[in-house]
Simulated scan of single mutants.
Amino acid sequence: MENKAVTTEKAYSTSEIAVMLGIAVPTARKYARQMETSGYEILKSKSNARLFVEKDIMALRYLKELREKSNVTVEQAANIVLERFDTETIQTVTPSDTPDTKQYSKQYDELKELIVHQSERMEELHKIMEKQHEYIQFRLNERDKLLMKTITERLETQKLIAAAEAEEKENEKKSFFSRLFRK
């Protein structure tokens, strides 16, 4: 017959245990799975996720030390841990052990509000950038028109100067021949 005891201990997830023990999450799962195979009972949440209490943390820490300090397999280490730790008492997690969903809900709402605010701000900045782009394009077009007008005027002026110089040379030629033949 199972002896169920209610505890108010904090329960930790596999990822939290992995951080505490300084091991990878898959390693923590492997150790927990092997301990369960050997007969050690670990609490489970309603969604069937493992929940570790202090006793479990000590057992996993001991298993880790056995693996590091001796040349035993995970299965052998789990059996040694099972002999050392009492597994008769199965603890159930009370609602106080589960994460404070109100706190997470509040944090979620705050993050959601922040994301909405940032999205609105990004939209405003996007509109400002579009206006700046339009202004820059307008100014570039105006500059290009003015530049083309200036270049055209300069070319026309150079043509007029060249035509005037050509006419002057023609006049000089005529005057030279007219002086030559008049005498």
Rank of each mutant, 00 (worst) to 15 (best):
I17H: 00
I17W: 02
V19K: 15
V19T: 12
M20L: 14
A24S: 14
V25I: 09
V25R: 12
T27A: 04
T27V: 01
T27F: 00
K30M: 10
Y31I: 02
R33H: 13
R33I: 11
Q34R: 10
M35R: 02
M35L: 15
G39A: 09
Y40V: 10
E41F: 07
E41S: 06
L43Q: 10
N48W: 04
A49K: 09
A49H: 15
E54P: 00
D56K: 02
D56I: 00
M58H: 13
K64S: 12
L66I: 04
S70V: 10
S70A: 12
N71K: 15
V72S: 07
V74W: 01
A78M: 01
A78Y: 02
A78E: 03
I80N: 08
V81N: 04
L82E: 04
E88S: 10
E88F: 07
I90R: 14
I90Y: 13
T94Y: 02
T94F: 03
P95M: 11
S96F: 05
D97E: 11
T98R: 13
Q103L: 15
K106W: 03
K106Y: 05
D109K: 13
E110I: 09
K112Y: 07
I115R: 14
I115V: 12
H117M: 08
S119M: 10
E120D: 08
E120N: 13
R121F: 05
R121D: 07
M122K: 12
L125M: 13
K127S: 10
I128C: 03
M129A: 15
Q132H: 05
H133S: 14
E134W: 04
Y135A: 15
I136K: 08
Q137W: 01
Q137S: 15
F138P: 00
F138K: 14
L140I: 11
L140D: 08
K145P: 00
L146Y: 06
L147F: 14
L147N: 10
M148Y: 11
M148N: 15
M148T: 11
L155P: 00
T157H: 12
